[in-house]
Design a protein around this nucleic acid. Sequence first.
DNA 1: CCTCAAGTTGAGATTCACCTCAACTTAGCT
DNA 2: AGCTAAGTTGAGGTGAATCTCAACTTGAGG
Lengths: 199, 199
Amino acid sequence: MRKDALHNRERLLRAARSLFADRGLDVPLEEIARTAGVSIGTLYNRFPTRAELVEAVFEDRVATVAELAERSLAMDDAWEGFVAFIAGVCELQAADLGYNDLAIRGGTADTDTGYALMQQIIERAQESGALRDDVTLEDMAFVIWGVAATVRATFRVAPGVWRRHLALTLDGLRATAAHPLPAPPMTPAQTRTAMNNCP
Amino acid sequence: MRKDALHNRERLLRAARSLFADRGLDVPLEEIARTAGVSIGTLYNRFPTRAELVEAVFEDRVATVAELAERSLAMDDAWEGFVAFIAGVCELQAADLGYNDLAIRGGTADTDTGYALMQQIIERAQESGALRDDVTLEDMAFVIWGVAATVRATFRVAPGVWRRHLALTLDGLRATAAHPLPAPPMTPAQTRTAMNNCP
DNA sequence: CCTCAAGTTGAGATTCACCTCAACTTAGCT
DNA sequence: AGCTAAGTTGAGGTGAATCTCAACTTGAGG
């Protein structure tokens, strides 16, 4: 790859990162190119589809989430670990409207290892007796979707209230809060399609 | 109003109702006109803006929610009343993607009397000791937004799981589940803007 | 039956975003 | 210095949705 091409790639990624962060994933590509000081043709050269650009912009997040998961597993208290992980992911969402959008659509921890780690965090918290026994990995989507919706709605007007939403939600996930659930959890397949279906 | 005009108005409302219900509020107006068997010009004649059409389509819901609230207040158990009300609103959301969209944007119970009734339901449930003391009317937006997000994501693939999300959320609202909340509630003004800000 | 205000029509103007490609420019090799 | 593959450019085609308006049609009162 020629050095000017690489340079332009960087500029595009920087522009996209910043625009996605405060306007969400639906920013016009033309605007990203303009902000990067590059023509629309160049953008399409580097990133033939929007998805590839998004991929590239949020590449690092996969590792971030994995680290988050490992740090959580390393914590002494299983419940605290669980909370730290969920809160950490939500923090990422709240810090970046683009990632928030992506989280809704299934970008978070979408690797098999990501899910495996999350599964571990959940099981450990359940074994410790703090996390209710009747929730599954798939139920975490509710937390992500819910907080994402609140983040989207309150991003500008009350940045930070999402923590209140999350706290209420977590209180519902404690074993001590458990009351029988009215419906079976989603299957992994359902969860996957639900995440990719999102507009 | 001439009788053919009235007739066309009805056809437009019927078409819009049905399209909104299963595709959300962003259906193209041309499609609504076509479905109604009427020209786009007529649609614009009757409803100069999309908002006016939406208004007309969901006019009845205000009363429905008010009834729901009154029926809930009439229930013996305050907590059951609270749950019945919230669940009732969510049921409306789940039954109609358009109303689900509208709920996100602040259409639900947006009358002063609607809020007043909801306030009563909450206070009563708190006085009974079942609903946690530290939540406010504004926190109900989290429930609505959260369930709305889940409804949107799972509408086709797992219609009904939203009940599970709601059940988990309600478990977090019980007094017995309460743990200190990390952030103050939204102010009414913030809630209002947050609702109207939504995309 | 006549009249005309009320209502309808749909072709086209407008806007906005996506995407392409032929002509141009340039990095980097020899 | 000269060559060429790699890269850039942006005007313009495409498509989808919104909105307008001048010409036409029709309900209903007299």
